[in-house]
């Protein structure tokens, strides 16, 4: 029974990992850029929520009204002002620049907030749970999972049903021709990053409500998000959710064996998938 419980909790944990991964998957899809600072921006979002709550007294979920647009603007500015300059045939510059950003963010947060761990208080939802026979499901993990699913449905709609989604796909296919068709690809890239940062903001708040965080919590979030993307298959948002769930279940089962084994179990599943299905579980058909 403990294992059934672990699987259920793992699936729900996968929702959080899908939140970490969705923004990463999105910008890779649009501009083949991997943001090494992705996890650190998630943590930055969490600190931004912390400040917002301290200043306004808002509930963490209501603080999203402020954190999401601020982060989205920041994403637009970073892409337009910095990262667009690094996009080109050479793959190293964007990796190096986002790597530099990661270190700068971590250490700036360290100077501003010390190494103290923080958490956002969300009230009774943190501990409330729903009993299904012997298994109890926390409302917060369930809400996280539902938000992840809704977000992925929403992103799919944006990608496949809207004009900006068409521009995302066209730019991803062939940026030079997209420009000849009147698309300002620098603006499109910046919009994609803004969208990714909006998702990052949501991920940051859910991370901060569910667990402690400190200035160095980012890299682990990047790694979980990255593992979810690779396990699920590049370029597929639903695959990313599936990847998050596989990773969450692997970690939860690993923790059943020994608490010290939790993270390593996730890494092992990642390497096994890489060995037997290098394109992930649900690669995009093309």
């Amino acid at each position: 029974m403990a294992y059934v419980d672990a699987i259920v909790q793992g699936i729900l944990l996968g929702g959080l990992y899908a939140l970490f991964a969705a923004g990463l998957s999105l910008i890779f899809g649009v501009m083949r850029l991997v943001n090494i600072a992705h996890g650190d921006f998630i943590v930055l979002g969490a600190y931004l929520a912390l400040i917002t709550i301290q200043m306004t007294g808002l509930h963490p979920f209501l603080a999203l009204i402020i954190v999401v647009p601020v982060m989205a603007l920041a994403g637009y500015a970073i892409q337009r002002g910095l990262l667009n300059r690094t996009l080109g045939p050479n793959l190293l510059p964007p990796i190096l620049v986002t790597f530099g950003l990661a270190v700068v963010i971590q250490n700036t947060l360290l100077m501003g907030f010390s190494t103290d761990t923080r958490r956002l208080a969300a009230g009774s939802i943190e501990t409330a749970s729903l009993s299904l026979g012997p298994i109890s499901i926390g409302w917060l993990p369930l809400l996280t999972f539902v938000v992840a699913v809704v977000l992925i449905v929403g992103l799919e709609q944006v990608f496949y049903r809207t004009a900006i989604g068409r521009a995302f796909r066209a730019t991803s296919d062939d940026a030079e021709t997209a420009r000849a068709m009147g698309i300002n690809t620098r603006h499109v890239h910046a919009l994609a990053m803004a969208l990714s940062f909006a998702v990052i903001a949501i991920a940051g708040v859910f991370l901060a409500v569910r667990s402690n965080f400190d200035p160095f919590s980012g890299p682990a979030r990047l790694i979980y998000g990255f593992e979810a993307v690779i396990i699920g298959g590049l370029g597929s948002l639903w695959g990313t959710l599936a990847g998050g769930v596989v990773l969450g279940v692997a970690q939860a089962l690993g923790a059943q064996i020994s608490p010290a084994f939790q993270i390593l179990a996730g890494h092992i599943v990642f390497f096994v998938i890489l060995a037997v299905r290098p394109r992930g579980l649900f690669p995009r058909m093309d």
């Binding site: 068409r166 796909r169 066209a170 991803s172 296919d173 062939d174 030079e176 021709t177 997209a178 420009r179 000849a180 068709m181 009147g182 698309i183 300002n184 690809t185 093309d286």
Partner: peptide
């Protein structure tokens, strides 16, 4: 480049270059 279309200049590029995911 992206301003040329609004000016009224369009191109049918060599090799067609359709957007494959559209």
């Amino acid at each position: 480049t992206e301003a040329m279309l609004k000016r009224g200049i369009a191109v049918v590029p060599e090799g067609r270059r359709l957007f494959r995911s559209l």
